[in-house]
Design a binder for these strands. Sequence first.
DNA 1: TAACTTATGTCACCTCATGACAGATGACAA
DNA 2: TTGTCATCTGTCATGAGGTGACATAAGTTA
Lengths: 199, 199
Amino acid sequence: MGLRERKKQKTRIALIDAALDLFLTHGYDITTVDQIAAAVDVSPRTFFRYFASKEEVVLSPCHDGQEIFESELAARPADESPYQAVTGAMRTALATMRDGDPATVDRFVKVGRLMEETPSLIAAQMCLIAQGERRLAEEVARRRGTGVDDLHTQFVVSLLTTINRVLMEHGPDDLSLLLERMERILAVAERCLRPGWDR
Amino acid sequence: MGLRERKKQKTRIALIDAALDLFLTHGYDITTVDQIAAAVDVSPRTFFRYFASKEEVVLSPCHDGQEIFESELAARPADESPYQAVTGAMRTALATMRDGDPATVDRFVKVGRLMEETPSLIAAQMCLIAQGERRLAEEVARRRGTGVDDLHTQFVVSLLTTINRVLMEHGPDDLSLLLERMERILAVAERCLRPGWDR
DNA sequence: TAACTTATGTCACCTCATGACAGATGACAA
DNA sequence: TTGTCATCTGTCATGAGGTGACATAAGTTA
């Protein structure tokens, strides 16, 4: 990786960190793009070359997390049921993140705290979830051998997304706690669902 | 109701209709608030006195629909399970709307078509759903006799919201068709769920 | 009609976001 | 090292969304 690419990564990370800190100390709505850019010593125009919007800089850690999950999911054996594959991928994705770069985890936690106190960001997060849901639909449809329009498949997809949403409801202060919380949610779900509901 | 109040209702409806028509013919993003205001012969500043944002004018029919549903839900007998109460309220709400003012239905259909072709609106809709979900949580917690933080209750709530979301996935071209579609989704859900899952 | 209340228009202003262009900087070959 | 090229960045201009302040117009009530 060349110097140019490394510099780009650095300013990208710097923008994210500066933005998260400013948002958390002064509030999301009140903080301006100009302030973020000034904190990183970059022109405001440059900010928008890295992030399409003010929201995107907050959501970028979530986006990265989604990609990790999705690559884990794709690596799952083909004979697993959708539920098995998704829950397995979630477990390994969270564990990988927990044992990885602490700075990444830190950013994740900050985003979580920010979400709780900023309603306007919830919409953006929901949008991200909806996009992820569409990609998940294709994976589930493949595993169930139906089209993405199949009503049962749509139900399975929505339910899997639901589990993930309930999980993320309360921000992840600690990833180990989050993993534990996830197991409890899965236990509830399995109590409610008939065996083979996702086949 | 006095003349002043009637006038307000009229401009409100006029703004919604003008906005929906402009959005559908030219596209949501390209249409400006100034154009909407000009179409109703009102100052742009006035538009923002009726709607807090450009999104809100689109979502207002959905918001009204939510309120109808929620009042139906509140009127349900207390001994019904959350699932029974919610599905019952949905049935009556949709039927009431179908047999009510055709203009209201028309607006609803237009919003649905607009959603399909405008990704940026999906986020806003999601936010509305999230808010409705929080209110639903209190109702479900009441019926289940738990707090809103109870994990099982959260699961039930999310699942009920999920059913609603799958239902609304494809815009309501026709309310009778929508009712029919709903019954099919409920059949799928009931096949997947153990009896008494929502108790 | 007079006094009051409330909705509207006008004006000024801020933030978000984008296109265009020029200059700075890294990449790469000779 | 140097020259060339690609690309990143800053500056400037522009437009749309959104809000506060204040005066004016219109409906309400006595």
